[in-house]
Design a protein around this nucleic acid. Sequence first.
DNA 1: CCCCATGGTGACAGATTCGGCACATTTCCG
DNA 2: CGGAAATGTGCCGAATCTGTCACCATGGGG
Lengths: 234, 234
Amino acid sequence: MTGPTTAKHTVLIIEDEPDVIDLLRLNLAKAGFRVLEARDGLSGLAVAREKRPDAIILDLMLPEMRGEEVCRQLKSRGSTAAIPVIMLTAKAQASERVAGLELGADDYVAKPFSPREMVLRIQGILRRLETSASDRLAVGPFEIDRGSFEVRLDGAKLDLTVIEFKLLVMLMEKRGRVLSREDLLRDVWGYHRLSNSRTVDTHMRRLRTKLGDHAARLETVRSHGYRFRAGQED
Amino acid sequence: MTGPTTAKHTVLIIEDEPDVIDLLRLNLAKAGFRVLEARDGLSGLAVAREKRPDAIILDLMLPEMRGEEVCRQLKSRGSTAAIPVIMLTAKAQASERVAGLELGADDYVAKPFSPREMVLRIQGILRRLETSASDRLAVGPFEIDRGSFEVRLDGAKLDLTVIEFKLLVMLMEKRGRVLSREDLLRDVWGYHRLSNSRTVDTHMRRLRTKLGDHAARLETVRSHGYRFRAGQED
DNA sequence: CCCCATGGTGACAGATTCGGCACATTTCCG
DNA sequence: CGGAAATGTGCCGAATCTGTCACCATGGGG
């Protein structure tokens, strides 16, 4: 996220059985989640659209609108399609599971479930979304956040140009591999016609300067290009 | 990814039973995946590190090194920690499942499993990773790719400044909500001391100019700030 | 209907960034 | 060791980006 860091994640429970709601609410709250609830499919859909929770636990058996349909509608609209949905159902048959997954559900838990497992699943899904959504890339002392265009080296924020940023990202993504000047021009600059100039070299120097002590990670491979050396932490 | 688009996803199967391997290999290949395999834990770990597959199917019962340990080691190193792991085990007890999830596994499938379900799970996990990894943000005619810093409007590439880009991303992420000038200064500019100038207004104008016909999506909310109007597609 | 707070707009100057060049340095090869 | 090729480095002018200001347009409250 580029935006302000949200302190807590919000989970919406769409479920009609009060016992199940209570069980989930208690455990999710204990794990630090904010909890919303809806007692039927229609209002669940409405709450999801209005509040945009970070995850949804969706019972299949619901009044007003069945869970399958709720899921389908969630997944069919841009603003809610990315919200992970965890299906909750009494039936554990494989056929049901497949149906749920085909609807676009992100995970599936059979009742009776262990609340601990449910919390872990949600945390796992959110962790996965989070690390790739804010799109962090960390190698040793280098930390890159594509979301906020920030680079940190040994914790200190580096002040890089857009080109320098892209250059470093590309080198780090392909760390260990040698990238030719053409590769870099194509991907960092987006050139089609290949400039025959020494632009890449110049920018590499600028980048190295800003990396200070760690400039050594940017290796020159004579006659071939440049490489971000992959260390043991990689 | 900023780099070239990879055509196929690669899945690594770490499993010692030939029957299971064949079943998976067949179905995954049919679904368009490239398949790697390893017959024991140690070599599985090695292959994972060298080839960096897009997903790993990991049996718990393995010669050389147990699946739990393989998973732990995968998750403990930067380069392989982000690879989703799907645990495969004969035991379906809840306790085992929790243990797997706590190890950092991303999903869990009990044997005997339906190959169809397995393929769906992998596709689901990869889809989730993908859409957020390349970090696309699409609303109506707007398409943003944070990976390549590109904005397209009605398919045409827009040439935005870094500030304009961040501004638009922030407004789109929080579309429908009014963002105050302070919100925007804090998140786009990263100011701590709040500039009392009209900087935000000026940049909004510049952004609007570049959006042409679609500038109307950027609404001014008098006395409060700005808002990206959420349309029906959202 | 008028006033004034609020926001839009055009302009501008300073700062930053960029691509390229000339020259220095290094590396490799015979 | 000598020379050629490759790369590092300092620097410059052009282009771009940015914050700010002054002035204009607008609209809501009294």
